[in-house]
């Protein structure tokens, strides 16, 4: 009886350890992706200046899509610095305090990123829609972008560096008045599972 109770306690301890280990595994995967991104990306010098940060909060609001990270002014972070993950573009810093910063996600309705469709080289503006998808607007009326095409930041405008992965085209539709086309974009980043990010301190 006593032995049985002891074994049950032992099982509980082991289950706790397994759960902790799987958490470490997930964290490890995410950090490895960030490292790979840092090494393989063509952004070179820009990434060399980057700072790693942990996500410590999310907006409770439906009207704004933001995150809070554990780096701020003391780490050299400034407004409008770009935030990326191992999967692609996350957003940009919208507010900075001494120890933390607020990141406006590309999903936010106020977020606009100049982008291009990789295969067709067409330029457009990727805008958030307050949902889990994005929209690339102002594509040419004769665009031949199709589902699955990769969308990257174009570097125009000087805010976001060129070549950051944003997502893939999910559908193409004619925009208002039929002059331009717009396309739905599935973000490359899974924002709901994001725990670690890189902040690019140089552009």
């Amino acid at each position: 009886m006593v032995e049985n109770r002891g074994l049950k306690q032992h099982v509980q301890v082991l289950q706790g350890k397994i759960s902790q280990l799987s958490q470490y595994e997930r964290e490890n995967d995410e950090l490895r992706k960030l490292l790979e991104f840092r090494e393989k990306s063509k952004l070179g010098e820009i990434l060399a200046e980057s700072v790693g940060a942990e996500v410590i909060g999310r907006s409770p609001s439906n009207w704004y899509r933001t995150l809070v990270i554990d780096r701020g002014e003391r780490d050299g972070l400034r407004r409008d610095m770009i935030v990326v993950s191992g999967e692609g573009l996350v957003g940009k810093i919208s507010e900075v305090s001494f120890a933390t910063s607020q990141v406006m996600l590309v999903l936010d309705e106020d977020s606009c990123v100049s982008a291009s469709v990789e295969r067709t080289r067409e330029h457009g503006i990727v805008q958030g829609q307050l949902s889990d998808t994005l929209k690339v607007k102002y594509l040419s009326g004769k665009t031949d972008a199709v589902r699955g095409d990769v969308v990257r930041s174009s570097g125009l405008g000087g805010v976001y560096p060129k070549g950051l992965l944003i997502g893939t085209v999910s559908d193409v539709e004619r925009a208002d008045y039929g002059l331009t086309m717009s396309a739905g974009v599935m973000p490359a980043v899974d924002f709901s599972r994001l725990e670690h990010v890189l902040v690019l301190r140089a552009r």
Partner: peptide
């Protein structure tokens, strides 16, 4: 407020991209 921000972040808990207003 905490639950809205932390727990209701996975996509399957946000139909139409909306999280509930628990407050």
């Amino acid at each position: 407020v905490f639950l809205q921000g932390a727990v209701f972040s996975p996509g399957w808990l946000q139909p139409w991209g909306v999280k509930p207003d628990l407050v």
